[in-house]
Design a protein around this nucleic acid. Structure first.
Length: 206
DNA sequence: GGAACGATTGAT
DNA sequence: TCAATCGTTCCT
């Protein structure tokens, strides 16, 4: 579908973002996770684009009992051991997909879970995918976000500097107030403060 | 081969 | 508070 309004909206959004260098992702998950707040996650789908500004993340490292990589490499978590800048997508509770950004060097087994974004582009697609038109419910939570973007395990292991999914960094560093807290929904590593959220954002989960 | 469980969500 | 739902992991 040729949609001049969508194209104009995309041009306006992309004006302030660009593909970060590989080194951006090669830092440890704890460093990268807060840096991803304010970045743009964008995905191509059926000739259109869905995108949003990241407002909530969580860091997972290999020495962390809550991390999928804690017990080493398996069939499911193998993407976590790629170098930084790739997707790690897994199914949770047999129902929901969760989207992660790998970080660190190759074999380090680190990733950042993207828990929420502020919808920016393709909101009509998100509404269709999510079967709700309540904007706060579209992408506030990892399962919701993946559903809104149409992300599933088919998108596991993709480069986030590639054609299908891109993670773009703002060109000008603006000061963002970030709230650090314990992570959501885990039973191990509960005391580690590795959740990062845009302060007072209406778009974060819980 | 089988059991237990999980980085969640939505309805009650 | 609880059910949904299934791939992965780990144990036998």
């Amino acid at each position: 579908m040729y949609d001049i309004q969508s194209l104009q909206n995309r041009r306006r959004i992309l004006r302030n973002f660009s593909i970060p260098p590989v080194e951006f992702f090669s830092r440890s998950a704890e460093i990268l996770a807060p840096e991803l707040i304010g970045c743009l996650l964008t995905k191509r789908t059926c000739g259109r684009f869905v995108s949003g500004i990241i407002v909530e993340t969580e860091a997972y490292t290999e020495d962390d009992p809550a991390s999928h990589s804690f017990r080493g490499r398996t069939v499911r978590n193998r993407s976590m051991f790629k170098r930084g800048g790739f997707s790690y997508v897994y199914l949770i509770y047999g129902i929901h997909n969760c989207f992660n950004v790998t970080s660190g060097i190759r074999d380090s087994g680190e990733a950042v879970l993207i828990r929420a974004v502020k919808p920016a582009e393709g909101i009509d697609i998100m509404i269709t995918n999510r079967s709700t038109d309540r904007l706060e419910d579209l992408c506030s939570g990892p399962g919701r976000l993946a559903q809104a973007f149409g992300i599933d395990r088919e998108h596991d292991g993709l480069s986030l500097r590639g054609a299908e999914i891109q993670l773009l960094r703002p060109d000008t560093a603006s000061k963002i107030d970030i709230c650090v807290s314990t992570r959501i929904g885990i039973k191990k590593g509960v005391d580690l403060k590795r959740r990062f959220a845009h302060m007072k954002s209406r778009w974060v989960s819980v």
